[in-house]
Amino acid sequence: MNFSRSLRTYLALHSWPVFLFLYAPLAIIVLFSFNRSPVSVQFTGFSTAWYTSLFHNQDILAALGRSLELGIGSASLGTVLGTLLGYGVYRYRAAGLAWLGLLVYLPIIMPSIVFGISEMIFFTYVHQFTGFLSAGLLTMGVAHVTFQIPYVALVVYSRLVGLDRHLFDAAQDLYANPWKIFFHLVLPVTRPAVVAGFLLAFTLSFDDFVISFFTSGPDSMTLPLYIYGAVAKKGVSPEINAVASLMIGMVLVAAITNLLVSRSKEQAQRPSRPWLRSH
């Protein structure tokens, strides 16, 4: 597609400010996390005091610990259930189950606020009638697994769709039983998707605020809940800027790793296709 010079100029003039719009707010957070003044939104001098006080703040460290525990725990179960579901929908889709598709999409379509209050009401009654599942990390985990399942299932499913269906016929012709097919064929070929699904599930859990907000208990404050509580109580504060900056930094690290990994994969593939080495 050859865009004319004037069109290219217009597109660039439109787009670079958009990137400014996307990054300026995050840059402001990082900038003010190094601000000396605790109250003002004017920059008065450089200081790392907020980061030091952060690492001595037991509440924040405990919240981070809970976020990791919740993320890893829920993502593990979510990945198992989601992988099975993704495989099942792929393998047995001949059954023509429209309702199943709708059910799998339900956690994605449902507005998160309605999702959250539904879980809250449900857990309240379950606890009232059975004594189990009092609000805390466990109820949060159950809710998180619920929204992780469809995402993992979709990732695994789309990996399976890319495969040759005859693989399964071949396995069956060789008298492999369903267990063997699952453990010796499905799991090995979907491993990248299962890993990606786990990481996605972990991120969804680690980042979730709305559903956590309604399913948490008095002793299960995770990092997003802590940040929200501090923001709602105090508004803008340098300590929150410091926590937020660290979380932005984590995202940057993840993105750079992602880029490097995909690049090294490309390079690893190159020697087998030397004719592609033109640039």
Partner: peptide, 17 residues
């Protein structure tokens, strides 16, 4: 990339601005 950060943080950034 910005949408990978937490929604609370992304919204808080605008409170600051």
């Amino acid at each position: 990339l910005p949408s990978w950060t937490n929604q609370v943080i992304r919204t808080y950034a605008w409170m600051e601005l």
